[in-house]
Design a protein around this nucleic acid. Structure first.
Lengths: 203, 203, 203, 203
DNA sequence: TATGAATGAGCGTTCATTCAT
DNA sequence: TATGAATGAACGCTCATTCAT
């Protein structure tokens, strides 16, 4: 049915409009400061309409995080599947992170901010679900690195530590980039990170 | 005036009581989820009294961040003042960061979370002030590293990039430590980070 | 026009589908708790369609009450038309009430609940209309009783008071029946009410 | 402490102001139609203030019902404690009901309306609590009657049925009184009900 | 200085109603 | 006739802030 298809596509399109507007707002202002009114205004829908597409504010919020993380995971997986040795893997990892976050820097901010809230209160199921997925993401990276670390060699650091340093370094550069309002060259950041990690610092 | 001094000291003490209780709450629950009622309860002062010491919630919040960052800067400065070469500097930097954040992990969370909200809307002056101080902090580190980078050598990365990688790496390990609820060994994290940055990775 | 007739009948049938589903919902959940969405779901019509048959929620609600009360009145009238003396009339009255309400206990709840809201604000015209019809119903019963009260005898109560006692007693038994979720014997209730009203209580 | 006492009394007074205003509104308009704004307006408190005295709308609503029913029960108990034979008991019962409801006719409406909502959904704990208390009330009356029914005599009705008829009859007369906006004589209603129940209707 | 009762703007959410298709 | 997406007013409730005591 072309007519049903068209409707479904239209619905998807509208849903995406909301997601994108909301992502921007949440990233700029934070979860609590962003109101559903704000989202409605930003989308040219009325407030009630938002609730036709998302059950509530939490649902909207975590859907954003979740779907973005999914594509992030997918893209990274694909990229890493082509690498063989550790060096390549590190290069691809850093590159992918910076590329993805440059494109989705709204998501970047959200995801970092969300990590900080390690409250005891379990929060909604949606939140739990997202945190779990994030852990999985980290473990995926750890494993990718681990499998490329030569069995014969002795490394003075664990795969997890390497993963954390790589992610932390890219995050810090991203943050710096955001602070400078995008005036810095992320390509250069990439090279510097890679150099730093892969080559001995002459002390 | 001994009597005036005593009063002043007493006032300072009470102010600190509030700051400490509030820091804990803000870090555990986040800025918005923490209410002034919560703070009042946690301090055994009444809600009205909090307002005698802090102009409003924002003032309370950023005073916490600000004063903590001050001591962080002071301690780091002192530690770095004793280092001479780059290696030493890096070691001390990483050590100080992890030590300080382990002790003040409440502050750690707050400060990271706050960085993420890069609104165009300037926010309160307090916020602006804090962000500026954070930038200063980063520049201080950058300078400390820069001054120890031998003039004669060629580094394939800038001092800023090195600063970012170091901070990012420690942050990531801190986050990981928080996620595991403090079950990991931060001392080991320190060593791994230093190894990773200072020694060539055999690829 | 057979075709027009068929259409008209079809329309009536659909209208009734809605009325019955709505009656059940309103009685179970109450007026405010029942949403037009609920009604739509229960009828397999879409929400918009409901509005083709009823001007608004109030119209739907009071149409239910009104039409049920009409049949109640009609049935009672018919039954009472066959009675001659007071005793018979009382018996038939109680019997009819219990029979009807047992069958239409949804209506029973609604009608009682509605009586309680005696606002000064006139409410919708529909509400006024229904309340008036209810008054008429009461007067009809009063008259039926009055006309059977022997002109020669002195009664220590008015026909209205008798009417109120009879209706109140049946209502109370109905309520009791509903509370026990239909586990009590309404036939027995009928006999007891009649005994109570018609025979002297030996004190 | 006179000062603490005064405060406590003042608080109680204000609480009562709210309860009375709310009772009136709920009775006139019904639970759902009455808004917390309405209550606030009617009390000259602000909306927020209402929430200092009652946890939420439900709490406010059922507190009204509950406290009124408590005094109703207490007063009835006291009155019935002085009666010996069945006749007296019936007289006192009817008298108490009409007297109490005349004074608290707002409560009367509320309590009847509430009985009608016998939804499956259990509702709040408060609701459950109130319904249970109402059942207890009915059983108390049943027992009072039962204990005065001579062991030696045969009654063609149960104590419960008698209780239901008495309460239903008074309720019906109350409703009639409310409909006529208090223009009827409740004293006369009382006599008629008693005559009707206690003397044989000459048929 | 310390209190805590009072405020009221603002939030997330619901739902009767409309209207283009 | 039938649909269901869209609306927006209105609700219950929260909480930062004030102020009389």
């Amino acid at each position: 049915m072309t007519i049903a298809e068209r409707k479904a596509r239209e619905k998807k399109r509208k849903r995406n409009t909301i997601l994108e507007a909301a992502e921007k707002l949440f990233a700029k202002e934070g979860y609590h400061t962003t109101t559903m009114d704000n989202v409605a205004e930003a989308t040219d829908f009325s407030k009630g309409t938002i609730y036709l597409y998302f059950k509530n504010k939490d649902d909207l919020f975590f859907t954003i995080l979740d779907e973005r993380l999914d594509t992030h995971i997918r893209e990274l997986k694909e990229r890493l599947s082509k690498t063989i040795d550790l060096k390549e893997t590190i290069v691809e990892l850093v590159t992918e992170q910076l590329t993805f976050f440059e494109k989705h820097h709204y998501f970047f901010r959200l995801t970092i901010a969300e990590q900080c809230k390690i409250e005891k209160t379990p929060g909604s199921d949606l939140r739990q679900h997202f945190l779990k997925k994030q852990m999985t993401f980290l473990m995926m990276i750890e494993e990718a690195l681990s499998s490329r670390m030569s069995a014969g060699k002795q490394y003075p650091f664990s795969a997890r530590s390497l993963a954390l340093c790589l992610m932390g370094s890219t995050h810090a550069h991203m943050m710096n980039w955001l602070m400078s309002r995008g005036q810095q060259d992320l390509q250069k950041s990439r090279d510097e990170i890679i150099q730093l990690i892969l080559n001995r610092i002459e002390v």
